[in-house]
Design a protein around this nucleic acid. Sequence first.
DNA 1: CTGAAAGCGCTTACAG
DNA 2: CTGAAAGCGCTTACAG
Lengths: 337, 337
Amino acid sequence: MAEIKAPKRPGRVTIRDVASDAGVSVAAVSKVLRDAYGVSDSLREKVRVSMDKLSYRPLASARGLRGRTYTLGILFPDMRNPFFADIFDGVTSALARTQYQAMQGVSVHANELVDAMIDRQMDGFILIGPNEESLRLVALAKRVPLVLVGHYEPGAGLLDTVNNDDQLGAKLVVRHLATNGYRRIAMVSLNQEPSTIIRQRELGYRIEMMEQGLGTAIQITRSSQTLRDVQSAIRKILESPDRPDALFCWTDLIAIEAISVATDMGLSIPGDIAIVGYDNTMYCDFAQNRLTSVDQSGELLGLQAARLLIERIEGRTEAEHFVVTPRIVARASSRRS
Amino acid sequence: MAEIKAPKRPGRVTIRDVASDAGVSVAAVSKVLRDAYGVSDSLREKVRVSMDKLSYRPLASARGLRGRTYTLGILFPDMRNPFFADIFDGVTSALARTQYQAMQGVSVHANELVDAMIDRQMDGFILIGPNEESLRLVALAKRVPLVLVGHYEPGAGLLDTVNNDDQLGAKLVVRHLATNGYRRIAMVSLNQEPSTIIRQRELGYRIEMMEQGLGTAIQITRSSQTLRDVQSAIRKILESPDRPDALFCWTDLIAIEAISVATDMGLSIPGDIAIVGYDNTMYCDFAQNRLTSVDQSGELLGLQAARLLIERIEGRTEAEHFVVTPRIVARASSRRS
DNA sequence: CTGAAAGCGCTTACAG
DNA sequence: CTGAAAGCGCTTACAG
């Protein structure tokens, strides 16, 4: 008739085991766990020893029921843009010496996934290049700590943002191309409406084209991100009678596809057409691409995003907006010999 | 003096709210949630209505404390290999109509991350190309449902595996190259010890080289995955006095780097050197690569992995090992004109 | 500084 | 078929 407490999670060491091993209360162990004050050094030491001895690991979801889970959600709009790996590297290194752990999610529309992650008690979120409307993002920030990478939301005091100066980046591209003698510079952009960074790049492109006296050559083509759409959009541009002599693509992956289409059509790069990307990903350096691109330090952006998010979670209430200055990295794809 | 129950999670609708709204017990709502039997249609209906009305979402971590969290961990060894995106697409589509949600993690060594994810109550794991030793993986499978993609573990009855026939894939490559007149076919492999799929590819390469009477030309170079190491390894191969006339790279990303190095050195592809990859990722099709590769249907692998994992979680105990037959996709990088 | 008790939002036996 | 109670592993006030 003994009371039977079947351990559901076989072998899992709980806070109770640690407490009894150390000869202290459960609450004391919890305090040591959270680095809370009000524990003597000797008690802390005893608990630490027991935790090590028993290889104790706190169950995040149990902690989350009252406090934090020390889990951050990092959301990407897709898995194929190589730039995101750079950002992720930054996040990883920022988290390395903390007790926070990153879980990633991938979804074109972050909304549902964020809800699912909130159900799973994430402490906060980094949204990379979110395709959501600003209003939704601001509403979300009311519920949970939020940092946006690649989305302008200057007015909002509820959330932090991390960006490069996209307008400047686009200007640098146009300036570089104009300096190299290109005139009919077209831009390949993205047709996702809420993307504020794309709009900034378009704006920078327009402004600098005017500045360079090339206003009449302004031509923006907006395409989805699917390989099929991108290819047909680019093909259409390159087949037009008044073919541009330079193509500014909003991200490297598109630029690489543009190189492919142009090559397929027998056009020489940069003789017949210059091609420039954005993000300066590893593919730019490959000899088959030699792609001029704008470096926006993805790793730095990721690092700052993680830092800002943790600060938020730990209590900061004023918004911070981190901006890095981009620089152009010229390669053969846009240099007239 | 009224009892104050401060709602910690402001605005969160709980199972209790639903129960009182529907006029039933908390246990009844839980049963509807879990699709458990022993609930009348009318009760179920009442509960459903209340859940919708209140926009109720169960808190996964609270569920996890006793039952499941309906969360799967998908672990990748890195974020830069484009093949993993194909696998992920398959996982995503398999999960679309289920209540399971995938969270991704990225880590060269899955071990620590899996522990962190177990702390976060994931119901099971898909490990993509794990770099862990078999013993550790088997031990892990004793603790939690586990499916391996890209790792052979035939003996183990505790875990499921999903693979393409890597040995056959490598044979197809050698056969294709030999048919196209290449003789000195070298292989660029990976120096990570526990990788069973790489060993299978090496084995297939060796066997088929012998088969083709090219045994004396067998040459395997093992490199790490860092850009730097890969480039210097390939450069060394291509600069050697008895330069191979074909390079079989264990994954597309390496092959693309090989194209870069060869191009840099002024070698023509496929005239001076043929290059073949593995995985048939989207980059193979680009005109600047035109890379021959082995298609192993990443999406199908991901789909099967997700299916097997859910089956495991829901009770299957015998192991299943899914194998897809690879096929070679020939492109210009290995075709002598 | 330390600990007993209540509670987070669910699920799980167990009665009825 | 339905529900009251105990419990999952933690944290949080609150006493002492």
